[in-house]
Amino acid sequence: MRTKSFVGLGLWLAFILAVMAVVVYMHPAFASPGSAALTANVNVGNVIYLNVVNSSSGSKINFGSIFPKNSYDTNVLVTDNDIGGNIGANVLVEGSSWLNASTSDTFGVSNTLWAASAQTSNTGTTLSGSFVNTGISIAQPTLSTPSTSNSIYFGLNVPAGTPPGNYIQVISFENYNVSQNIYNASSTTNAITAKVTVPGTCYISLSPTLISFGSIVASANVPTNVLVTDTDNGGNVQASMLVEGTAWYLNGNTLLTNFGVSNTLWDASSQTTYTGTALSNTLSSTGITIPKPTSTPTSNSIYFGLGVPGGTPAGSYEQTITIENSC
């Protein structure tokens, strides 16, 4: 009898445990991880980013002060970054004309040069007014290298006749994947501003640099009609012409007291006679001006004549005439 009751109790206990096991198994709170399947989908598209910076001044580059006809070597660095994209790209670049905002003076975009590497001279490809593929590539960013970049260098040539003043140019960039025809999706900085100051300048170029009065007998003269042309082929402001000379030297080294510098006359216009202002051995203003050059050179003329004093010994004589421009 006692044995039967033990067996019954054991069966009841086994039944209760089995029910509890089923309840625990069925309850979601006791579900083990991975026991339910969930599928998540995401579509990562191709993207290119763009951020251009100059290493020292952010979105600006400064060429400083450049005289007309002078240049800046193509070595001003701009870095094009793709931060967070996932495909490679090429750098496209374009620029605006150089503009003086105060005077509205301009000079061409093509005076700016670019190159893929720093140059020690003003060489490279001329910048264009529309986007051009530079061929400079920016590597594909990856999970391990999420930021990639490449360099482009700029230089500048200031053309002759550029009016003095402060000029700016905007250089714009795009990153472009050619094979997938994708441009940069968004950018933080896609343009830089370039600056240059053009000082006032005048040049002098004389032609000819040797003049001959021919053969003259003593007490004779040459009319003041021997031309020297003074040309400014690169400046940007008006210049004044000054002149001085030395005495005439026999055979280039013997000074004669009666054949002095003042035997040479000069005039602003061609004369049919020996007339004009006596040349001096101190620099004197002629009153002749060389107009301000623009895109084309400007020039002006000065004429010389010579009188040979009586009693001057025969021989070859030489004089140095110095013509100077001042601006």
Partner: peptide, 20 residues
Amino acid sequence: FLILSLSVVALSHAQLGEQA
């Protein structure tokens, strides 16, 4: 008085300039 005619060949034009 004789000054000989000179043979002058212009190779290039010097372009000296100054800041205004």
